[in-house]
Amino acid sequence: MKRVKAAGRAALVLALCVGVTACSRTPDLMNTQRGQDTPDEFAILPNKPIQQPENYRDLPPPTPGGSNRADATPFKDAVAALGGSPDRLNRTGEIRGEPGLIGHVTRFGLGRDIRTILAKEDYEYRKRNDGRLLERLFNVNVYYKAYRPQSLDQEAELARFRRAGAATPSAPPSGEFQ
């Protein structure tokens, strides 16, 4: 009788463990939503300031569903911030001109579905490095542990650049890391 009770308890514990681990979900390594009860300040995208035109007759006609001069243009803003010419971007965001740059960047081929491929590979990697049972159960952040093999040692790279004679003006002074 004792054996039957012990076997019953063991089966119950085993079923409970299988039930908890069988709950499949997308691996969430970073847990950015954990404990967040305030607004996300990065979700707010400010518009450009509204400008008073010199002459209202010179305004372009409105285009329903189109853009206006106060809309945010993050791609053009990024190109301008990096020293490029935002006027060279067409409506799809592809760069026109610059054949030397485009030729160099696409010299090993151009995969149009690279985002899909990377998303799939990253999902598989996150599934393999999803953390242990208790880490998943208590929603512990395992992002940095999972991606540690792919991380860069900042101090070693800075020392390597300085030994090579490269200028590192935005890095801390030499004695800071020692």
Rank of each mutant, 00 (worst) to 15 (best):
D77E: 12
E121Q: 09
G65K: 01
G131T: 02
T21Y: 13
P64Q: 13
P62C: 02
L12A: 04
G19M: 01
L29T: 05
N68R: 13
L45Y: 08
K120S: 07
G83Y: 03
D77W: 06
T73M: 11
I95T: 05
A80E: 01
P61K: 13
A167M: 03
F161A: 09
L82H: 07
R69W: 12
A156V: 03
N129A: 04
F75L: 14
N31C: 14
A156M: 03
L152R: 03
M1P: 09
N90H: 05
R91A: 15
E155L: 03
P169S: 11
G175I: 04
S24F: 11
E176K: 09
V140Q: 08
V4D: 06
T116L: 12
F42N: 15
N47G: 07
S85K: 07
I95G: 06
R57P: 02
D87H: 08
R25F: 13
A159I: 11
V79I: 01
P62L: 09
S174H: 06
K5W: 10
P64D: 06
F108N: 14
D71T: 08
L137C: 10
Q150Y: 06
G165F: 09
I117G: 02
P61A: 12
L137Y: 14
E121G: 03
E121S: 10
P27H: 11
V18W: 12
R107C: 01
G97H: 00
Q51P: 02
Y125C: 01
Y123R: 10
G109I: 08
A78E: 03
A80M: 00
S67G: 15
P74C: 02
Q51N: 01
Y123L: 13
N31Q: 15
R160H: 02
T106F: 05
Q52T: 14
K120E: 11
A171M: 13
Q150F: 05
G175Y: 11
T32Q: 08
L14E: 14
T92N: 05
Y144M: 04
P99S: 03
A7V: 09
K5L: 12
G100Q: 08
L89Q: 10
E41P: 10
R128M: 13
F177T: 09
P39M: 14
I117T: 08
V13S: 12
D28I: 05
A159Q: 14
I50H: 06
F138Y: 15
S85E: 06
E41R: 12
G8S: 06
R57V: 13
